[in-house]
Design a binder for these strands. Structure first.
Length: 555
RNA sequence: GCGGUCGUAGCUCAAUUGGAUAGAGCAACAGGCUACGAACUUGUAGGUUGGGGGUUCGAGUCCCUCCGACCGCACCA
């Protein structure tokens, strides 16, 4: 909602409160809340004030609404602002005068690129997502968590938050040894193709170049050494190479991280000790069988969790305690976007925040649900064991960044996703990505056909009073929704609403385009419609940018 | 067995935390270019929101109970 529309609404709510006080003396002072009606024929905004009054008034909401509308309808000031005030089914529905929308559009044009953007609010949010084991290439899951995370981060920045994006490298556990042995096996196979590959190793061909690089540098020397001699090197080279590859993939995907945090470094730096000590000090740990446990059951988990094993090594959870403790200290809000296999983890994390002395709600975990890859009717097998994994790079190669980013955020994060690669790469009307991009390109095309002086005049601020066609008003209303929509996306952690909104904007534009000739003979009309195009194109580019999709001038 | 997420049109998904006649896209059918890009648009059809019960002015949404799908349930990460 723009300032113009909210001003109009506050005038209305004042009038409505007066009417309530006069008609129902003794009724509690109620906040008049506005909401967007679902259907356009109910007007631009609605209030359900009559519902809460029904009890006090001892009358049906419909009657209350009708009575209040009758009281308010004659007020001249309101008639200037609202084209229609009516009561249906207990709701009071309002429709703005075209002048209100015209003023709102003028404001959007004046705001330019800054439209809807909130000033910095100095609230720090830590956003962790994507994070993977450094034992192989990134796959679809990271594609989805990265798309969701990056989109949320963009939306939060737009709303003025100080967002810090973090990727955690799970390089602390025994899996790194497994990686080292796998790379070593590939290395040995260079000299002896029959050398056995470890049972629990990481299959797939991607380790071969890494083994080859070691062979190129050191030759055969590791063939004759003990495991203790070669394992650190092979693990390290494997880890470093794979992390580097993951970074390249992520970058190619248009996603940026402010911090790549190694778990191993956390442990070495002693912050694990600090986190652990905090829990011990809080008295939420105990010792049993030589291990140290966290009393997770006190905080809603179904089992107490081991922090330090009986051999003295910290668990993954323990490192995570330290990491989240650090994040909680430096951010007002901590959000993790996790893969589908972390369902059971979310309660533990929130309990952890509480145990560390913070509000449960300071930490949130969002689960990105499972992805089923399809190619038309056929399901794409992603079995890791069989060796033929579909990597995120494969997907980008096949459908492109734009389609991938769009499809990954299309459904709600907690809703499972069926991703049809064939559909995503089709440049057809079945593909929602192109529909939105087409809207943007179509506007660019109009500007090319228009007189440059006209476009310039529209940018500078042209009179808009000719805009009263329903399609014009609907489009203004839609783009004016941007700020509140993004706020909602952030509040509800609902990035998928952006893709839906992008589609709605494009749809309203296409309808406007069909019904109204933009380059009209009349100059006033022409400039007003070009102004509407300028604002629409900016909103489309804005939303596409947040999702990580390009906004092309031509297609 | 315990816990979590989910179940909505033929398909893929929405529904602004309890609001109006549950909405879009695709697919199907019928229309619209001698206007700026038809990658567009207008209309029709499509539903007992998995089943049943409850809470209230009002439930896809909250509670109970079944059914079904997926995922967790390690001194793995």
């Amino acid at each position: 909602m723009s300032r113009i529309t909210t001003d109009a609404l506050s005038i209305f709510s004042r009038a409505l409160r007066d009417a309530i006080a006069a008609r129902y003396p003794g009724a509690p002072e109620t906040e008049v809340a506005f909401e967007a009606p679902r259907r356009p024929e109910f007007g631009d905004v609605a209030t359900n004030a009559a519902f809460s009054l029904a009890k006090v008034a001892r009358a049906a909401p419909q009657q209350v609404a009708a009575a209040l509308v009758a009281d308010v309808q004659g007020i001249p000031k309101l008639a200037e602002l609202f084209a229609d005030i009516s009561a249906t089914a207990g709701f009071i529905n309002l429709r703005f005068q075209p002048e209100i929308w015209q003023a709102a559009l003028a404001q959007i044009i004046r705001d330019g690129a800054a439209f809807g953007q909130q000033p910095p609010n100095n609230i720090r949010i830590s956003l962790e997502f994507g994070s993977a084991n450094p034992t192989g290439p990134l796959v679809v899951v990271q594609g989805r968590t990265c798309s969701i995370g990056a989109t949320l981060a963009n939306a939060m920045k737009f709303c003025g938050y100080d967002v810090f994006t973090e990727w955690i490298i799970n390089d602390a556990g025994g899996q790194l040894d497994t990686l080292g042995r796998s790379v070593y096996a590939r290395y040995r196979q260079i000299y002896d193709p029959k050398f056995p590959f470890p049972e629990e190793g990481y299959p797939g061909e991607y380790l071969e170049p890494i083994a080859r690089s070691i062979a190129d540098a050191d030759g055969e020397r590791w063939v004759y050494e003990e495991e203790s001699a070669w394992l650190p090197l092979f693990s390290q080279v494997g880890r470093d190479t794979l992390v580097e590859q993951q970074r390249r993939t992520v970058e190619r995907f248009g996603v940026h991280f402010d911090l790549w945090q190694s778990e191993k470094e956390l442990q070495d730096a002693g912050s694990v000790q600090a986190g652990l000590q905090r829990l011990v000090d809080d008295g939420v740990t105990y010792e049993a069988d030589g291990a140290i446990y966290f009393r997770a059951t006190q905080f809603g988990d179904d089992k107490d969790r081991v922090l330090v094993r009986s051999d003295g090594r910290p668990t993954y959870f323990c490192t995570d305690v330290a990491y989240h403790y650090a994040k909680l200290q430096r951010s007002e809000r901590v959000i993790d976007i996790l893969g589908p296999d972390h369902h059971g983890y979310i309660g533990r994390l929130k309990g952890l925040a509480e145990a560390l002395g913070y509000d449960r709600d300071r930490l949130d975990a969002l689960i990105a649900q499972q992805i089923t890859l399809m190619r038309g009717q056929e399901q794409v097998s992603m079995s890791k064991r069989a060796g033929h994994i579909v990597t995120l790079d494969d997907i980008i190669d096949e459908v492109g960044v734009d389609a991938a980013r769009f499809f990954f955020v299309l459904p709600a994060p907690e809703s499972p996703l069926t991703f049809d690669l064939q559909l995503a790469k089709e440049q057809s009307n079945e593909n929602p990505v192109y529909y939105v991009q087409y809207g943007h390109a179509r506007i660019a095309s109009v500007f090319k056909n228009a007189d440059a002086a006209d476009v310039e005049a529209a940018h500078a601020g042209a009179p808009l009073e000719s805009l009263r066609h329903p399609a014009e008003l609907a489009l203004i209303r839609r783009i004016a929704e941007l700020p509140s929509l993004v706020t909602n996306v952030v509040q509800r952690l609902a990035p998928h609403r952006l893709t839906r909104y992008a589609r709605d904007v494009a749809s309203d534009f296409h309808q406007f385009y069909t019904e109204c000739k933009i380059l009209a003979p009349d100059r006033g009309e022409r400039l007003a419609r070009l102004s509407l195009c300028i604002a629409t194109q900016a909103v489309l580019a804005r939303v596409l940018g947040m999702v990580g999709v390009s906004a092309p001038e031509t297609m």
